[in-house]
Simulated scan of single mutants.
Amino acid sequence: MIDPTMRLPAEWEPQAAILLAWPHAETDWADRLQQVEATYTALVAAITRFQSAIVLVANDSVRQRAEQCLARHCLPASRLRFIEIAYDDTWLRDSGPITLRGEGGFVLNDFRFTGWGGKFEASQDDRIVAGLVERGMFRQARHQHIDWALEGGAIESDGRGSILTTWNCLHLRHPTLERAHVEEKLRNTLCASRVLMLDHGYLEGDDTDAHIDTLARFAPDDAIVFQACSDTADSHYDELARMRKELESLRTANGMPYTLHALPWAQPIIDEGRRLAASYANYLIVNGAVLVPAYGDAADNEAADRIGAAHPGREIVQIPCRPLIWQNGSLHCITMQLPQGVLAEPPAD
């Protein structure tokens, strides 16, 4: 049963904080830890210019390392908080809470996290939301455990009842379910009125099975920002062209076509013979700004300009994300926004 008072906010609505987890030697970042720490440092420094960042740390030594990396930026102490908790890796978009808000407070949707369909160990990540609840991090929020696999990167919300997703990802998570059943589950758990599901779109090097946040993103004023491919010789060209046609055929809840913003295509980035998934669509919206991935590519600035055009009135800040795509994700994948009002006051030191 859908609760008409609840909804999944759009990412551009007011936020309390951004949640992320610091990489360390026991995560998959171990081989290139210093490079990825530089990205995390730039990211946290950018976030705290605009709002709070909550950084999960596995233990005290990881916290000390994070503090050491961040010390050079003189960050405002009131906007940085550390919470000690166990985690397998740092992809909090997929293991963090999917937070609904309504007239009476919030619901922390805690879907089952399976390591993207059992590809990786995820037992500690699957307990992160419950662990944060136990630590008293939230207020006026009901923790709702849902024994159904869904990752935050697999869904986009316009804040008004529309969910954008991809069939490939959800079908692979739930191969025995019919499409109608999957859509019904999304509507019920996310309190949505409709589900827009794409059949096309993928990126080489992406092990999430086509998360929507690497392909197409809702933007204000009935717009969609999407990753295009202009290189006819590239292996992505046909599939992303088909995705574009799908997006052109979508209609808003009022029956109008969406305004589409196409993102430029970065040149292939190859690492030890493996192509990496360099998507500009994997950006993060914060209060007053949009943090956009930069890959050291000639298209970086054009991508930032186009994302800025889709989110007018916000400052655009580029974050060096090339180290992140080594592990098949980017900026949006390692973060999760928390809506304004959901956080409890942190305990006094």
Rank of each mutant, 00 (worst) to 15 (best):
G288F: 12
G288R: 15
G288Y: 08
G288V: 08
A289I: 13
A289N: 07
A289G: 02
A289W: 15
A289C: 05
A289Q: 15
V290F: 01
V290Q: 00
V290R: 00
V290G: 00
V290T: 11
V290L: 01
L291A: 06
L291F: 06
L291P: 00
L291R: 04
L291T: 10
V292P: 00
V292F: 02
V292D: 00
V292W: 01
P293F: 07
P293G: 12
A294Q: 08
A294R: 15
A294K: 05
Y295W: 10
G296E: 08
G296H: 13
G296A: 09
G296Q: 08
G296L: 10
D297R: 09
D297C: 04
D297E: 12
D297I: 11
D297Q: 11
A298M: 13
A298W: 14
A299T: 07
A299H: 12
A299W: 08
D300K: 06
D300T: 07
D300H: 15
D300Y: 05
N301W: 15
N301F: 10
N301R: 12
N301S: 05
N301E: 15
N301V: 07
E302L: 13
E302T: 03
E302C: 04
A303P: 01
A303E: 03
A303I: 11
A303H: 03
A303G: 02
A304K: 01
D305Y: 10
R306T: 05
I307E: 00
I307T: 03
I307F: 04
G308W: 09
G308H: 04
G308Y: 10
A309H: 08
A310M: 09
A310C: 04
A310N: 06
A310P: 08
H311C: 00
H311G: 00
H311N: 06
P312D: 10
P312W: 14
P312E: 09
P312A: 07
G313W: 10
G313Y: 04
G313K: 05
G313I: 14
G313F: 14
R314F: 08
R314H: 09
R314Q: 06
R314M: 05
R314D: 05
E315H: 04
E315L: 12
I316M: 02
I316P: 00
I316G: 00
I316F: 12
V317H: 03
V317I: 11
V317M: 08
V317A: 03
V317D: 02
Q318P: 14
Q318M: 11
Q318F: 13
Q318C: 11
I319Q: 13
I319L: 09
P320G: 14
P320Y: 10
P320N: 08
